[in-house]
């Protein structure tokens, strides 16, 4: 019931924001996400999308924007390289979608890259209703949702898991020194990856980093399982990232 109200709400937000009511297929999928979430599903069987973003800088408020978006899929603990996602984004193109619907053209037509809204739609089609995972996910989600809201008026509805939170939890449980104190975003991931003997993929491409994060999460599944964390619901409780705004 609540879900239905929420779904209806999303439609309204979209219509208000874009001035249209024909939601593209990928966006309509977003309406089903909440319904699809089954907290009792075993982590070991559940499909996940592990992703990473690259941005022009660290500060959204100062105009930094998304540069690239990479992701891999995992099912049954296995990463499928063939089912990967990688897009480069033209950072200048982050303008409101309503104008694009009116003009029918993107402002930066000279650029070979599709507009951010197209990329977001592709990404939404790729992730479907899966739980999505990133390292320090709130950072990536801030940029992604900013773009989402400016294009479609609402945020990504999928459940988000932060591998850094999983790592912190494991550190508490197993009393292992996973995270070097007072280190920045990158070295933290590097330190954790090094601890688990994950050989670096192409660092600092969104795809390479997404793959590294996936390799890390692959190991976490096993450790979590040993510590009694077996279901999606439990995972979300220890490492879920709350999504701000509608």
């Amino acid at each position: 019931m609540l879900n239905f109200l929420k779904t209806n709400n999303l439609r309204k937000v979209y219509a208000r924001h874009t001035g249209r009511d024909d939601m593209p297929e990928a966006l309509r999928k977003q309406l089903e996400v909440k319904e699809a979430y089954q907290p009792e599903t075993l982590i070991s069987n559940n499909p996940f999308v592990i992703f990473d973003t690259e941005t022009t800088g660290l500060h959204l408020e100062e105009g930094d924007r998304l540069l690239s978006l990479g992701a891999v899929k995992m099912t049954g603990g296995r990463i499928h390289l063939g089912d990967a996602f990688y897009e480069l984004i033209d950072p200048k193109g982050s303008i409101s979608t309503s104008s694009i619907f009116i003009h029918g053209i993107t402002p930066d037509i000279a650029s070979a890259r599709p507009h951010i809204s197209d990329i977001l739609l592709k990404f939404l089609a790729y992730i479907e209703c899966d739980v999505i995972i990133a390292h320090h996910a709130s950072f990536d989600m801030k940029f992604l949702n900013h773009a989402m809201r400016s294009c479609f008026g609402f945020s990504i509805q999928n459940r988000v898991i932060d591998t850094a939170l999983v790592a912190a939890w494991i550190q508490r449980m197993e009393e292992v020194e996973l995270i070097a104190p007072e280190s920045c975003h990158d070295t933290r991931f590097d330190a954790i990856a090094a601890h688990f003997g994950i050989t670096a993929n192409d660092r600092h491409t969104a795809f390479g980093d997404a793959l590294s994060a996936a390799l890390l999460f692959q190991r976490f599944i096993n450790i979590l399982n040993k510590n009694g964390v077996k279901t999606l619901g439990q995972l979300v409780r220890i490492a879920g990232v709350s999504i701000q705004g509608g």
């Binding site: 603990g77 296995r78 990463i79 390289l81 063939g82 996936a214 390799l215 692959q218 190991r219 096993n222």
Partner: peptide, 11 residues
């Protein structure tokens, strides 16, 4: 080849 490959982890 990479497109055909999946990656598995064995503790």
């Amino acid at each position: 080849l990479p497109q055909k490959i999946s990656i598995d982890y064995f503790p």
